[in-house]
Design a protein around this nucleic acid. Sequence first.
RNA 1: GGGGCCGUGGUCGAGCAUGGUCUAAGAUGCCUGGCUUGGGCCCAGGAGGUCGUGGGUUCAAAUCCCACCGGCCCCA
Length: 484
Amino acid sequence: MGGFIAKESEKFERFSDWFDNVLLTARIADNRYPVKGFIVYLENGWFVIERVRRRLEELLEEDGHLPMYYPLVATLENFSREAEHIKGFMGEVFAVGKLRTGENEAQQETPLILRPTSETIMYPMFALWISNHSDLPLKVHQSCAVYRYETKATRALYRVREIPWNEAHTAHASRGEAEEQVRKAVEIYRKVLDELGIAYLILRRPDFDKFAGAEYSIAFDAWNPDGKVNQVATVHNLGTNFSRVFGIVFEKREGGKEYAWQLCYGFGYSRVLAAVIAQHGDDLGPIFPPWVAPIQIVVVPIPYKGREAEVYEYAKRVYGLLRPGFRVRLDDREDVTPGEKYYYWERRGVPLRVEVGPRDVEKSAVVLARRDTGEKFSVPIEMLREEVAKVLEDIARSLSERSKRRLSEQIVDAPSLEEGARNVELGKICRVSWCGSEECALSLKSSLGAEVRGYRYDVDEKSDRPCIVCGSPGKTYLYVSRAY
RNA sequence: GGGGCCGUGGUCGAGCAUGGUCUAAGAUGCCUGGCUUGGGCCCAGGAGGUCGUGGGUUCAAAUCCCACCGGCCCCA
């Protein structure tokens, strides 16, 4: 009763081809839409995003974030208020205006811009709503799409021009309160990603790579089979940089006025979906963690000549038993062989298969087959529901563990620049000792040929080695890797 | 920002060098029927292509030239 042996050579060796293929055959996304950087999310991809969205929003709202929806467009004037912000984004904004329909129609008005992120759309409103300490904290969130005119090569889900995400924005009465919110935001994102079994590093970005207009930025970098890390979420402490230019001022309890302390943080749905596919998938296709799987269980009848009726009857019964509580599908197509059905659903990422044939009818049992390991085992029908629940849980757990293991295998300590450069070449995430100076971090970028992703936020990593660049005593470790 | 490669049914892909034999190979996927059914079986039949788009060269363009669109890769 052997299953298959999961292979991942294609995924690791030819990631690009593998990924594009999987998107289409597993009905996740279709990137043939004829506008660069825009894709169609198909039923399975969108299902996963919707599940993740609901869970994230639930956690945000438990923490007091109010759901709102802000306009897609902004005036160029508002967008330009914060100097660093506009510097960081100006090169990639979409402009919109009325389509000129006639030759002699007057020159069009100053174009509006499509949000590349919503600070400059939300904060003028914050200024209207916040006037005193009792108006704080203000926490809002929205799930929407933002638009960034990427000029580099785009890639479905990873680097797109229409980015589905959730963005949260908060305003607080003190620096300390804002700092506390940074920790809460990190916890919320961590929770969702952990539930998906995604393995990542939480890194504080070097100053030269922080969000345009932020005091500092924290990012979640997920590993990817091609060695380029995938930034799936970020948390930014804005300090009072934006409240100063948008006039978000509150009257303090003890009198006097103060600029509000602000945060913004974003969680990229399409990149999280990419991480789920890329980290958990194998050469056959994706393996969806059960709680986000569009179909969790597929029931495949194995009819034999002369015994079709009883097998189909039994399969229906099994299906009926699983229906309440599970997203289950009965594949009773009669002109397709069971083996073909196995492949069909495996390619679509269904985490668990239930096989029922004449042998099972006789024994009042079923065979469960795990998508992640290929393992098969027989379960008596009285135990069906509990066993299925247990196995699904175990699949989630083992996907998560396997992914964490992969991440730690991908991180390599580099004692020298040469070693580091070589490992970058091999698609590793290099951990290097660092003295803490901006110059040294900046120079790593060119000497290793990769992005400096920052140092650990959640773990205090003390370095006892000299800085890899300047040789002076190291303070902590920097992570350097190619990136999306 | 700089450089290179590529675009042929849904998907992959032969053909392009040396224009004509292309009424465009093959595979896979899809549809019909039969056979089979504990891992993609087999047999028979079928649908599906303005050769990315526009222009040019030519008696003749999938093939040569230009522009645009789209995709991939490398370097900053």
